[in-house]
Design a protein around this nucleic acid. Sequence first.
DNA 1: TAAAGTTCTTCCGTTGAGCGGAAGGGGGGC
DNA 2: GCCCCCCTTCCGCTCAACGGAAGAACTTTA
Lengths: 248, 248
Amino acid sequence: MGATVTSRALDILGAFDGEHRSLSLTDLARRTGLPLATAHRLVGELHRWGALAREPNGEYVIGRRIWQLGLLAPVQSGLRQAASPFLHDLYGTTLATVHLAVRDGLEVLYVERLAGHVSVPVVSRVGSRLPMHATGVGKVLLAYAPEEVRAEVLQRLTRITAYTVTQPARLLEQLRRVRAEGYATTGEEMSLGACSVAVPVRNGDTVVAALGMVVPDLRRQLPRLVSALQVAAHGISRTLAGPSVQWK
Amino acid sequence: MGATVTSRALDILGAFDGEHRSLSLTDLARRTGLPLATAHRLVGELHRWGALAREPNGEYVIGRRIWQLGLLAPVQSGLRQAASPFLHDLYGTTLATVHLAVRDGLEVLYVERLAGHVSVPVVSRVGSRLPMHATGVGKVLLAYAPEEVRAEVLQRLTRITAYTVTQPARLLEQLRRVRAEGYATTGEEMSLGACSVAVPVRNGDTVVAALGMVVPDLRRQLPRLVSALQVAAHGISRTLAGPSVQWK
DNA sequence: TAAAGTTCTTCCGTTGAGCGGAAGGGGGGC
DNA sequence: GCCCCCCTTCCGCTCAACGGAAGAACTTTA
């Protein structure tokens, strides 16, 4: 596989994740499968550049330089900033957990999250990924994804709770309705006790993100939540389409 | 200089900054001084891994994977999250531009920023760096920095406005007062029309960050602002010292 | 429409940078 | 003391990275 120097260096960075925020040299060597001496050299270079930093205890963590670079990513500087005020409004009026997510490959990537005080069992975190077929934002993004992506996702509908939709035909039907009605819902398909609604966020004609919220129960207030979401989504779209948000 | 493969790959990432968020292949080759063919190969690898992404127009931007990694940096997951609620409170009670910053090498690195509606000419941005001797947070961080850092910074007190302190002796005296009184101030030393106050944020005994605010004028309300800042700083310190903030 | 100028991509023979096994610290637990 | 684990350094071999050059794709100029 990855035999190039660059890919090895990147693999070292990739060894860090939400559960492994700080790793010792040997941890890194083990997780990447690199010989210790090699890992040592690469880690040294990454450290010298500022991609990695050392904790007082000697373990390595992601460095500030990477954090800084991350702030330049379009997902951060464009979409996120455009959406920020609308998310706050939305949270203010509904007090539910609000999410902004994009599609990344075959998964949903959470870009922003405002957590409600009344906490519902929510799995997502900013920067984390979840399967598309079991989340509200995922269904929206899947509904508007290229045919090939949809086809591939439909092949692997892994079961997560007892309510997860795992039959391709049934999910396809749901996606059709998402396109027709403009919103997606889930009921305890990702975690028990959590339902969700989501709507697409457009930039011009294309769906670039999904905006969703998680609540304990949908029945009663669905129309109100959908319209609140749509108002916010339109606001974000307008900001995105506006004069060069991306660059300021 | 940088002759290793890794450092070249990192240099490519380093070519991106606040003013250059998207670059073409030739831009990258030029900015890094690499031969086009070499840049092409490295960029290809970075792209394949997700460190770089391609815009519709073919230019490269920082990819989502880097953004995700950045979220794992301690500056983001520990300090920033601990401080967030206090910053919001602080902003709510004062309506001034609020800053959280750390020292990175010989400069101030802005970690978080809440912008006031009544905008004062503020230069900082999250992820950007400014010189230490001309900012409130910078003076605080400098006052508590290791002797060697202070010595080096004092050698290069570049003038920015007519009010910037450029005499080492005068700055040293100010730093002494910062330590004695627990807060630092600036008056139009970084940009005209902007004054600032800042206080240290501690984790245990060591100063890990500085909390500051920028206002058009300090005279009248200084005591009130200082005490508001100190309350917030103590709150952050308590959260940092508390049970494992860093890991949740 | 051709010509001249961009920028991007692919090819391939040469060579020195990266490789990694091995050996040498350092510390802390028993 | 001894053992074990983790980190760091060394060094000769080899193969991956290098980059000049040629050509493809696309744009601008004449």
